[in-house]
């Protein structure tokens, strides 16, 4: 991570709030989430279904649909604020600066057009190119994402591709205009395990070679461990822990993250029963006071039920937990270099 020390983050989300207006008042779906991603960095965002992972990604791309709306916070992309842009300005940014990869490659491509047509259309929307130039670029993109025989496959329709190959096409589409940020929403969930590994390899390579920042939304800790540099854990619309992958996987600070790690099946240890976190995530209408996790937390004490914890630096990570505050001071003082790539300087 030290090689990013002089660069400012590609994506900087500060205290993001997203609300859904309903007849019974506004529901807080995202409550004070802050994220930063440095160039060439892959930030994994994990959490249960409904934790707000995808919603955060959707808000960054400006594709939030009514009744959902950004109720507070700021989103900066390469230093420019983007959450206040008009719809049309935001549209120009999508595909150009922010690429998106969706979960299901079988349904993300229009079945009626050749992949070439869809690629060329996207390229020409963002870059001043002739059809022939755009076609050349499309072929080049397809070969970059590891599609064999791109010259012939470019004229084929989506249904002539396998799932993994389609996801490569989707990645190529996301990379058409060399975006600085790619938001990959469960990019491997719909794929076979063997194909998952290939897609992750492609993503990692592109990230390394082109310095693209990637926000990798998934509920699969295996994918995070494999691909991400840092990981952000979300629970009930809030960030509970952020830190380097190794740190979070090996020594999770937040009880929720610990529970999440313990519930991953492993072949290394002989475990009688897989652990699970008791209970389920609260509904948006009934988020408890204090720490949202307190009813399920095995270590909860009185303070957790009344006061909401903010992210507190501990070791290389940050965790939103009162237990952490009572821990001894981190062994190593946080260096300035790590600051750009992690969370630390907000919520003061």
């Amino acid at each position: 991570m030290t090689e990013h020390k002089v660069t400012s983050p590609v994506l900087d989300v500060r205290d993001l709030h997203i609300e859904f207006d309903t007849r019974h008042g506004a529901l807080k779906a995202i409550d004070g989430v802050s994220l930063q991603i440095a160039p060439g960095e892959i930030l994994g965002v994990v959490g249960e279904s409904g934790a707000g992972k995808s919603l955060t990604g959707t808000a960054i791309t400006g594709l939030l649909e009514s009744p959902g709306r950004i109720a507070g916070g700021k989103i900066h992309l390469e230093g420019h604020r983007i959450d206040t842009l008009s719809q049309d300005e935001m549209r120009r940014l999508r595909g150009r600066r922010i690429g998106a990869i969706f979960q299901d490659p079988l349904t993300s491509l229009n079945p009626l057009y050749t992949v070439g047509r869809q690629l060329i259309e996207t390229i020409r929307t963002h870059l001043p190119m002739s059809k022939a130039q755009a076609r050349q670029k499309a072929i080049q993109l397809l070969s970059e994402v590891g599609l064999p025989a791109p010259e012939t496959r470019i004229d084929q329709y989506p249904h002539q591709f396998s799932g993994g190959m389609r996801q490569r096409v989707v990645i190529a589409l996301a990379l058409c205009a060399d975006p600085k940020l790619v938001i990959a929403d469960e990019p491997t969930t719909a794929l076979d395990v063997s194909v998952q590994a290939q897609i992750i390899t492609v993503l990692k390579r592109l990230c390394r070679e082109q310095g693209t920042a990637v926000m990798l939304v998934t509920h699969d800790m295996g994918v995070i461990a494999e691909a991400a540099d840092r990981v952000a854990v979300m629970y009930a619309g809030r960030l509970v822990e952020v830190g380097p992958v190794a740190e979070v996987v090996k020594s999770a600070k937040h009880p929720y993250t610990q529970g999440l790690m313990n519930s991953i099946p492993t072949v290394l240890h002989d475990v009688e029963r897989l652990e699970q976190i008791e209970g389920s995530m609260p509904r948006l209408t009934a988020i408890p006071e204090g720490c949202a996790f307190n009813p399920r937390c095995p270590h909860a004490f009185s303070r957790c039920r009344v006061e909401r914890p903010n992210l507190i630096a501990v070791g290389d990570s940050d965790a939103a937990c009162w237990l952490v505050e009572d821990m001894e001071e981190p062994l190593l003082p946080r260096s300035e270099t790590a600051k750009t790539a992690t969370l630390s300087d907000h919520h003061v």
């Binding site: 549209r91 595909g95 229009n110 589409l173």
Partner: peptide, 26 residues
Amino acid sequence: KTDYIRFARARGLTNRAVHFGHALRN
């Protein structure tokens, strides 16, 4: 509501291209 329309928007295509190029034909 389909994914390929959402994806077409996410690629920054103009509303015209999304509505008439992609949605209408389907």
